[in-house]
């Protein structure tokens, strides 16, 4: 027989419940910030428009990092753009996720031996989902988004927490590659 006695939940439990409710909303309403530097970006228009229509998953493009939940890194990143990517990522409001597109973000892809391009994105910022392929086709992209939703549901999309916890490690990698993350304003100073 179930007890009808009211048992107060501890603070952690209450927080966890709220977090689960929040996760439901967050995974059904992913707003993207597209960092379209590489060729994989071409896969996004069919994903957004009538062919695959990602709006039915509740996803949509957003204009600024403040509003967005998920940062799409579509392809290779040169050192100059990596700085901007880190800056943009740090401006996003938490919880925030990153999806890396194409083999360039995984191991450098066809640019693996270039001096100007980084090879492994998740050394510099925490990536939650990688979509492999060169380029990944649109089904794979959509699949990647669904995977991200599952990860959020299972509380495994914790890249942003990892970035806080291991910030020193990320910062060391960033410094090793870039020298200095925040450069001077080369146009105006």
């Amino acid at each position: 027989m179930l007890s009808t006695k009211f048992s107060p939940m501890s603070k952690e439990e209450v927080d966890r419940k709220w977090w689960e409710i929040g996760d439901f909303f967050r995974r059904n309403s992913l707003w993207m910030l597209m960092y379209c530097t590489g060729c994989c970006a071409i896969e996004l228009p069919p994903a957004m428009t009538s062919a695959y229509d990602m709006e039915r998953l509740g996803m949509g493009p957003m204009a600024t990092p403040r509003q967005a939940d998920v940062l799409l890194v579509t392809g290779y990143l040169s050192l100059k753009t990596l700085r901007r990517l880190i800056y943009t990522y740090e401006q996003m409001s938490e919880p925030k996720y990153i999806v890396g597109f194409g083999s360039c973000t995984i191991n450098g892809g066809i640019y693996h031996d270039s001096h100007a391009v980084i090879n492994q994105l998740n050394k510099y910022v925490p990536v939650d989902v990688f979509v492999a392929g060169c380029m990944p086709n649109t089904e794979a992209v959509m699949n990647g988004f669904v995977d991200l939703m599952d990860l959020i549901k299972n509380k495994k999309a914790n890249g942003w927490k990892d970035y806080h916890e291991r910030y020193d490690w990320y910062l060391a990698n960033q410094k090793a590659a870039l020298g200095e993350v925040r450069v001077h304003d080369e146009f105006h100073e």
């Binding site: 600024t64 990092p65 403040r66 753009t81 700085r83 901007r84 990517l85 800056y87 943009t88 401006q91 925040r182 450069v183 001077h184 304003d185 146009f187 105006h188 100073e189």
Partner: peptide, 15 residues
């Protein structure tokens, strides 16, 4: 100054 600048580093307030 920590505002959206499309990823650019700007340190001059007037701008």
């Amino acid at each position: 100054m920590d505002t959206y600048t499309a990823g650019n580093f700007i340190y001059t307030e007037e701008l």
